[in-house]
Structures are given as C-alpha cells and as structure tokens.
Design a binder for these strands. Structure first.
Lengths: 361, 361
DNA sequence: CTGTTAGCGCCTTCAA
DNA sequence: TTGAAGGCGCTAACAG
C-alpha cells in the first residue's frame, strides 16, 4: 500500500458521493453510454464538489489510446523547430490531442531514448525530425512502427524509411538562391554547408558522396547549389564549400579562408542561421562589407535578418504550415486513413532584401 | 476487448517465454527484488528476443510515480525559454527523469489546460513560468499543489503563490542598464515595456500600479528603470515609456513617437527581444542611427545582437543555469527535501558592446 | 529465491 | 437505464 500521495478523488469516490454505481459515474464522466439526466446531474455535482479529474493513465490503460502525439525535434533551441512545433500543437489541440515534445539536440542516442520514452508512454503517434542517416540508424523508428505506432517524418526525409514526410523544397530553394546570386553577376559563390564530414571533400564526386551520407536536407541543399552552378556552366570549386562541424567559430574561419583566396568569393550562401551570423563576423573581420564587397543569402528568415543594415535576403520556410501539415497527416492516419508514404512538399519563399548586389569591379 | 493494437509484449509473455513466473520476470525487468542469475539471464534473453519494453503507464499506475517532470513555458518560440528548457532537460535526464513540455503562448487558458494535462498524466512535479497575475488566476496551480504535486516557478515569481521560484535579478539588471546609459550622459531614456495595460499610464503612480498588476518580471524591470532615474535625479516622463501590447509593429510606432518628440529620446532601453528589433526599425525609419543619434540596450542576448553593426550592448540571462536550477530544486523536493518556498536569484550579465555612446551635441 | 495473489483507476461487456 | 464483475500491465505483499 503506497503512502498517501494525494492522487485526487477516483471515480469510485465520486460514485459514492453521488450515491450511484461506479459504472454510472464512469459513463457520465467518461462521456459515453446512457445515463439519466438526474443521475448525470448528481454525478457531475459530486465530481465538481470533489474536484475530480480523470486519471489519463488509467484511461489509456483500458482504452489503449492516449490522445497524445509525441514529437521529437532535432533542436528545440532552433527557432525553426520552435515554429514547427507551434504548428503541430495548434493542429493537435484543435483535434483534441495533447502533444509531448522531446528534443534530441541532434544526437542520435537521445533520439533513440526519446523514441523509447514515447513508446513507453504509449503515445498514439509520433512526428519526428530525425538525425538518422542510413539503414542501421533507423531501428528505433522501426521499433515504434512495429508496435503499430504511426510515424510521420517532418523537415527531414529519411531514405531508409518508407514513411510520409512533410518537407520543403530544399533543393529548389537552394537553387533559386544561387541563381539570384548568379543573375547578379557572381561566379565565385561560397557555400556554407552543414554536415560534419570526416574529411573535406576535394572533388565533386566526394562531395556528392558526402551529400548522400548526410541529412536529407543538407544533401538537397547541396544539390540545389550544384544545379544552379551547372545550369550557368560555372565550374565547381571545392575550395568554396565549407563542410564539417558547423559551429559559428568554424564558419568564421572557413568563410575567412574563402575571403582570403586569391580569386576570392564574392558571394556567400548559408544553409543555416548560424552560418549567416558566422559569415557576417568573418566579413567584418576581413574588413569587408555587404552587399558591395560580398553578396549574402541565408536560410531561415527572422526578425533580426530584417533589421540588419542592410537587411538580409533570406529564404523563409513555412514553419507553422510545415508543423500543421505533419500533424494533419498523422492525425488522419490515426483517424483511419491509409498512410500515403509519400513526400508532402511545401514551398519556401526567397525574401529579397538588400544583401545582394553585383560583384565588385 | 479492444482490437489488436500491437502494444508489444507484456511481462507475462516474457515470463512464459522464459518459463518463469511473472513476478520473477517483473523483478528482473523492473530491477527490484532478488532473482537468481540464471533465471535473470533467461528472462533478459526472452525480453530481448520479444523486444519487450515496459509499459510506463501500467508502471506508474501501480507505483504512483511517473519519473516525469512537467514543464509549462510561456512561449517555446522564445529563445529564452528554449534555453531554459535545455537546462531543465539536461538536469532531469541526468537524474533519470523524463520531461514533458507544454507551451501556453502567454495565454492563461492554455496554461490552465496545460496544468490539467500534467495533472491527468500524473507527472511527479511541475515547473512553470506562469502568466498568472493575481490571486484569482492561480487556481489551477493551487489545484496541482492540492493534489500533492510539487510546483516550482521559473523566470517569473507570482506574488499570490508561496512557492520556490528560480529567477534572475530583473530589477538590478534593468537598473544597471539604465545606469550605463545615464553614465554616458543620457537623460531622455525611452523604455520599451511589455505589459498590455488597459490605458497608457500618464503618471508615475499609475505606472507603478500597472507594474504591480503585471508579470513579475515586467514589474521588476520597470522598478529598476525608475530606480536608476531616481538615483540620478532625472524626472520621470510618462511620454518615454511604451506600454501596451508589445507587437513589433507597435514598438515601431511608439519608439517613432518618442523619437519625434520636441525633446526627443537619446537612448532606448528594451525589455524584450522584439522590443529591440522594433526599435531598430523605428530608428531606421526616422533616419537615425546608433549609437551616435540614439543609444541602445536590450534584454536577452543572441548571436544576432553580436553581429549587428555596431554590435548591440545586451543583458544576457543565464538561461541554461536558470533551467538547471529550477529542475534541481524540484528534483530535490521530489527526493524528500522540504520546499524552501523562497526566491532563488541568479545573476544576469550586461554585455557591453558598441550600441551606447554619449548623446548628440 | 520464486510463484501466487491482490490491487492501481478506468472502461466495458453482461445481466438485471 | 443501471450496477456488478472482469481485465488493461505492472508492482508489491505474501506465502512457499
């Protein structure tokens, strides 16, 4: 007999207080089955008086459903995911579902742990932006699926997983940005990339290989960059892409390097927010300014980007919509819909401001 | 009999597979009581083979504890809270607790709903940055406490609640910032404030009243502003404080107004991130620049603030530490410690960069 | 050391 | 329409 932990009144106590059987109390409180108006009123009054709240755990145990969605995001500290989450929450709440959020901070071990937490807590479905790269890194997601828990991918598709994925047109978005740069006259375009590759790719082939071994989004963005270059017949130069652990410090160093090249970069395209802040610092350090010395375009718009002087040209992702769509897809599956197992692609938007000009000279 | 929902194997199935009684299986899988090495191995093997995962719901039901902390933040989209959350997660995880996060988006109704979700899911304890202003807005928190669920406040203390609260020195932080402005020679210092007051306070008394009816943090920051003014014998001018719904748009308008005053503002102190971006836009609109025309200091440092040109002087809050401390306090209470019911105050830090100079002339 | 047994709070047949 | 009884998966006394 566990010590009194004040769990609050149970349905039996409410039934006793109302002078009815527990089943009757359960029916009115659970909102199912028939109960006469009078008894219903008595039960409601008793519940009110006692401050009754249903034990969701007990309820889930007997019904097998929790009306709860589990969400695993890669980094809740990233405004992108925070926005995504809001889209998910809004949609889930509107349909009567609670949301449990877990952040992995881009760490696969934490993602596995998070998945297990969600399985253990018996959520009805899962939305995940996974850090998994290949076949041997998706066992945890498979485990959830095997248990009959529907999973929807968001932001990042995973090739090894044949699931619904709600994403944006990363490749097109990147291509469009680079095309804008090219149209302005640039040919030496730096690419601040994400993946922590083992060693810097020195050929196009190695780069492509690295792309395939990276997060889907990263791969797509790289392909978009290459697409634009190819279309304009601009030769690819491995010196102009930064890969490797993308801390702001490293970005500063790498962009600095590209800026110091004999045939230096005249434009920089950043695939992440911290790529942009790092690039800005590198510019300042080199005594250069934008857009005249160097043109700049980055991913993920924000209030800050708009108030920079000059304001930054950025790619805005429809974050709220992305989350909302992911929730909808999952909720539909929970509602009985057959999973489409396809990619749902949303359009991003290039917001042209004032960080792109023609190259110097 | 609910349809097969593939909940995964139960302890009984594992026991059967291993050829032992369920209690034995439960003991080894639950990690309690004595089990002989041989049987233990057999059970473990069977569990492994079947892919057994304990049902956390069932476990919580019989033990009465969930090893889960519930966290209610005001706005997960605010990097401040995202950082806080990381501090909480890191600490909780280290002590074997899961964390459930709910965001209220500054809406009291959602906060109440969130609290109920946590009560219903039987979390062991709750950390909340509440939007509650006064006595009649804390019933939901009281309800949790009445059920024996320990609650710790974070970021915002609530006068009507006698609970442990982990906060920063908002008043001192604001005073220090304004003192820096005064030391630089400013006497016309604009204050971009938060609370959505009914009507703009036109006297010091009204302002103080508004402060008492606002979020604790907002009240403290206002008092700090006033402290600094008083110490320097600078008369308070209601025209220099902006209150009311703090959208970026409104900030632009209000700061614009302060900039257009005959005896215009020469410095602006912002209590929130969007206050700063709004002020920056207002400056640009007025054709003014910082730090020469107007000095600027804001709350909540970020990578962007550091790369602005010139870089912004900001107040950095120890977000991770704030979250970690809140989690520690709560976990200690869960561990049996007596709640101190006091304020745990952490120090913020004013990071001086280059947005403050002497006033023009 | 191991197995049996009785709940945790709720939902859900099944009779009455 | 209502109440009694059994079960969800697990823990925890209790015998053996």
């Amino acid at each position: 007999m566990p010590a009194d932990r004040g769990q609050g009144p149970t349905i039996s106590e409410v039934a006793a207080e109302a002078g009815v059987g527990r089943a009757t109390a359960a029916r009115t409180l659970g909102g199912y089955g028939y109960v006469s108006p009078e008894l219903r009123a008595r039960v409601l009054a008793a519940a009110e008086k006692l401050g009754y709240r249903a034990n969701a755990l007990a309820r889930s145990m007997s019904t097998g459903v929790s009306h709860t969605l589990g969400v695993i995001v890669a980094d809740i500290g990233n405004p992108f995911f925070a926005g995504l989450l809001r889209g998910i929450s809004d949609t889930a709440r509107a349909r009567g579902f609670d949301v449990i959020v877990l952040s992995t901070y881009e760490n696969l071990q934490q993602e596995i742990a998070a998945t297990n937490v969600l399985i253990d807590k018996r959520v009805d479905g899962v939305i995940v932006s996974s850090a998994a790269l290949d076949r041997d890194q998706v066992a945890h997601i498979r485990a959830a699926m095997d248990r009959g828990i529907p999973v929807v991918l968001v932001d990042r598709a995973v090739a090894a997983l044949d699931l619904d994925a709600v994403v944006i047109d990363n490749r097109d978005a990147a291509r469009e940005a680079v095309e804008v740069l090219i149209a302005a006259g640039h040919r030496r375009i730096g690419f601040v990339w994400g993946p922590p590759v083992a060693q810097p790719p020195s050929t196009r082939r190695e780069l492509l290989a690295a792309a395939s071994a990276s997060l889907w989004t990263d791969g797509e963005r790289l392909r978009g960059y290459l697409d634009a270059l190819d279309d304009a017949h601009i030769p690819f130069d491995p010196e102009l892409v930064m890969a490797g652990p993308k801390t702001e410090e490293r970005v500063v160093g790498e962009v600095g390097r590209m800026l110091a090249l004999p045939d230096r970069v005249t434009a920089v395209f950043c695939t992440e927010t911290d790529g942009m802040t790092g690039s800005l610092r590198a510019l300042r350090k080199a005594g250069l300014s934008y857009p005249d010395d160097v043109a700049l375009i980055g991913f993920d718009d924000s209030a800050w980007a708009a108030v920079m002087d000059p304001p930054l040209t950025m790619i805005a992702q429809p974050v709220h919509q992305l989350g909302a769509k992911a929730a909808e897809v999952l909720l539909d599956i929970l509602g009985g819909a057959e999973p489409a197992r396809t990619m749902h692609t949303l359009r991003s938007q290039l917001i042209q401001r004032a960080s792109v000009a023609a190259p110097p000279e």
